Amino acid sequence: MRQGSVLGLSPAGFHRVAYTEWGDPANPRVVVCCHGLTRNGRDFDALAADLAADFRVICPDIVGRGASDWLADPQHYGYPQYCADMNVLIARLAVPDLLWVGTSMGGLIGMTLAAQAGSPIRRLVINDVGPFVPKAALLRIADYVGLDNRFSSLDAVENHLRKVLAPFGPLTDAQWRHLVEHGHRRRADGTFGLAYDPAIAGNVKLAVQDWDLWALWDRVACPALVIRGAQSDLLLPETAQEMTRRGPQAELVTWEGMGHAPALMAPEQIAAVRQWLTRA
């Protein structure tokens, strides 16, 4: 495991985008794993460690999250900036093509990039998000994103994450502790906060409405795998089924006992992703 970074550029100046890299740096077979709205690239440690025998695996922290910089002007937190930053990262990798695994926001970034003419993405795994995002799910997320939480201890951070991330599904105590370890930051006053800029919520709250992105999905030409939590309120069952009929006509895997979004930490979930990525 290695740490690296690239420089992204927003209208307010440059910012550092951090990433974690696994596997042989000379391996031309590359997988980029991109996380959800309030998470970071270390969510993929278990998946990346498993894939590293066959792939070079890159797990970025989208700007404003994890070890990446926070934007000087929060109004630029949004998909145009995220996609531009990922284009810089892809250029740094110096490979002609790659595979993409994206959870929620990371899935939408991957879908947007894969829909572009000449896209280098050759296979797309999209975890619990799709081209229709219902307003009700965005309202739920907007309720907790952007709160400038202060916690007195890491145990308090864990209690909070176990509540808001309960839809991730059943996780072991060690897995929850992993999410806490990489999902917190120490504040100047000695308390603990979450490892993201609360200002990412600004544009999320402005965009609380049904999202219709079918025009993007219909332009995706690479093979796609859609993963869905059976109780997900963000990727509705009818949307997931329609994704198997339109655009790349994705394969669909549904995991019981979880909602938005499967954590991709359980052995059976990791095995499903590995088998699909290595099928080619």
Score class of each variant (00 low, 15 high):
V32F: 07
S68M: 02
W70A: 06
V145Y: 06
K163N: 14
D69G: 01
T20E: 11
R56F: 03
H184C: 10
R123H: 08
S10R: 07
V204R: 13
A137P: 03
L51F: 04
H184L: 06
T172K: 10
P120S: 05
V95E: 09
Q116E: 14
L9N: 14
G102L: 00
I141D: 08
L139F: 12
K135G: 07
G4K: 03
G183M: 00
L51C: 04
R162G: 05
H182S: 11
G247D: 02
D97S: 15
M265R: 09
Q209R: 15
V180M: 08
L113E: 05
G66H: 02
G259F: 07
I270R: 13
L37N: 10
L71I: 06
D210L: 08
T191H: 12
L213C: 10
G202M: 11
G8T: 00
V133A: 08
R150E: 15
L161A: 04
L108Y: 01
D54T: 08
M105V: 07
P267G: 09
D24E: 07
R122L: 08
A271R: 14
I58D: 01
S232V: 07
W70I: 05
A49G: 15
A91P: 08
R279D: 13
D45P: 06
E158Q: 15
V164M: 04
A53N: 11
M258Q: 14
G118T: 07
G13A: 11
W70D: 06
P248D: 00
A136W: 10
L194I: 03
E242Y: 11
P96T: 08
S5Y: 14
G110A: 04
R162H: 09
K163V: 13
